[in-house]
Amino acid sequence: MTLLTLNNLTARRGACPVLSGISLQVGAGECIGLIGPNGAGKTTLMRAALGLMPSEGQSSLLALSASARAAQAAWLPQSPEIAWPVTVQHLVALGAMARGRGPDHASVDRAIDRMNLGAFRDRAANGLSGGEQARVLIARALAQDTPLLLTDEPIAGLDPAQQIRTMRVFRDLASEGRSVMVSLHDLGLAARHCTRIIVVDKGGIAADGPPEAVLTDALMGRVFGVTAFRAETVQGPVFQPMETLVP
C-alpha cells in the first residue's frame, strides 16, 4: 500500500529553486532516513509534500482536505515550540485533537509510554529540559496516530540513549505497518535503524535505497565530501564518517 506519492515536486524560494522535480513513493512499513548536507532541501521536501509551502508538481497529500491530510500524515517541525505552560499530558493530547476527535486517551497514553514520559505527565511542558521537550513533541506527533509521520531532525538534541530509543520507536512504527520519514545527520543511526535512505543534495534526490546500497564511498565523497568507515558486527552494521576530503 502506498502512503505518499510525490511526482515532479518543485519548490522555489523567490526565483531560486530549492527543490527540483522530486518523485518518490512511500509504502507502508518503511522507516526512511532523509539525509543530506545542510541546505540540501530535506525540510523543504517534507514541508512541500505536506502543503505547508507553495509548490508545483503533485503530492498525494495535497489532494486531500486539510482534516483528511491531518488524519493521514503527522508533521514534527525542527524548531521546537511550546508557547504556554501546559502539562505534558495536555500537550500530547493536542495530537489527538488534530483529527477533530474528542480526547483520545488510549493514543495519548500510548504515545507517552512510547516516549517514556510517564514521570513527566503532570509537569509543565515548557519547563522541561530541551531534550525532554523534544521527546514531548515527538509524543504529540505520535498521538496524532497517523499512517505516516514526517519528522525534521527529531533526535538532534537528544542524549545517545534517547536517540537510540527514539529511532527504535520509529522502527517499531514501521514494523506495525506505518511509515516514518525522519531527517537526520547521524549517518550511523540512519544506517543502523532505517530500512531505506533517501539522499537529498542540491534540491534533488542523489540516491534512494537500502542503507548498505546507498551509503557508498563514492556517494559519501560526492555528496558530503567525507570518507567513512564501515563494518559488520554481531550487533549490526557500524557506519562512521571519518575525515573531510578537502581540509
Partner: peptide
C-alpha cells in the same frame, strides 16, 4: 481549538488541519 494548536507553532498547527 485553533489557539490550542498554535501552542505548537504555526507550522505544526497548519499540519494538524487548522
Amino acid at each position: 481549538r485553533g489557539l490550542e494548536a498554535l501552542t505548537l507553532g504555526e507550522d505544526a498547527a497548519a499540519s494538524m488541519g487548522f
